[in-house]
């Protein structure tokens, strides 16, 4: 018999089928389209598009930008999570809101702000030009724009977890004579490692996939300031569809790996929590 708080079996299956069908059409079909379009003429053109020197440069640049932006925002996120989740102080709620602010800012604005500061007609533009330093339309601009859009990821993953865990464990370690760093490495880090890893992963996925913000500061110089997502756009606008979809497929693979790893980390985190 159906319990009073459950739907009849037919309704249940109907709802599940509807959800699977709609999500499949809305989310999965686009993904399938990327791989189909990329492989339209077999593997040859895909390999050729990825081996192209400009594509190689774009891949290297994307890795470089992520390799700078992700560690900076990881360290900042750890510091932010430590003071927000372990102490009370006036302005704490405001600080939290400001840390999450970049999520509600358009990617284009995230790029625009750096042009306003460091562009040719920006606040510091003339000074930079006089000293022959280039930030916008160069790699530093790409890094800054990426830092802005990936800013909240690590802090946002850590803060709710660390607030829930409370400060008892670290207080006990301090009472037993552990120094601050000892307590961080031996007590805090093991408690948060899966969440931290998950935050870093999401931060990295966004850093490598960011389009709008880097598009504004890049200047689209091939082989120099073109990241992978920007390379996709250039190829697409030149009607090199197979090449565009080949690079897009590589980025889609990155997204799939990120999702799989995130699911795995969540399960590891839940198992640990269940044992504690």
């Amino acid at each position: 018999m159906t319990p009073a708080t459950a739907e009849p079996r037919a309704i249940r299956w109907l709802l599940v089928a509807l959800a699977v069908l709609l999500l499949g059409a809305f989310l999965l079909l686009p993904l399938a389209a990327v791989f189909t379009e990329a492989l339209r003429r077999g593997w040859g053109p895909v390999v050729a598009a990825l081996a192209d020197p400009d594509a190689q440069a774009a891949i290297r640049l994307t890795l470089l930008v992520a390799a700078i932006a992700v560690p900076v925002n990881t360290l900042g996120g750890l510091a932010g999570a430590w003071c927000i989740a372990r102490f009370t102080f006036p302005g704490r709620a405001l600080l939290l809101a400001l840390i999450e602010l970049p999520f509600s800012v358009s990617p284009v604005i995230s790029g625009l702000v750096w042009v306003l500061l460091f562009g040719a007609h920006g606040w510091f533009g003339p000074w930079l030009q006089a000293h022959d330093v280039q930030i916008v339309f160069a790699v530093p601009g790409l890094v800054l724009a990426t830092l802005f859009v990936t800013f909240p990821f690590v802090a946002r993953t850590l803060i709710p977890l660390m607030q829930e865990q409370g400060r008892a464990a670290e207080e006990a370690a301090a009472t037993l004579g552990a120094s601050g760093w000892q307590s961080f490495w031996r007590v805090t880090l093991p408690q948060i490692r899966w969440a931290l890893l998950s935050g870093v992963l999401l931060c990295n996925a966004r850093a490598m996939g960011e389009f709008g913000a880097v598009s504004v500061v890049s200047g689209h110089i091939r082989g120099e300031t073109n990241t992978m997502p920007l390379h996709v756009e250039i190829l697409y606008n030149e009607y090199q569809f197979v090449g565009a979809f080949a690079v897009a497929a590589l980025l889609a693979l990155l997204a799939l790996v990120t999702l799989a790893a995130k699911a795995l980390l969540e399960r590891l985190g839940a198992r640990r929590g269940g044992m504690a």
Partner: peptide
Amino acid sequence: GMVDLPFALPTAVAGLALTA
């Protein structure tokens, strides 16, 4: 897992895919 796909998929890839 599928629900998070739009979070993880780079926006340019999503744009290209939807257009195709």
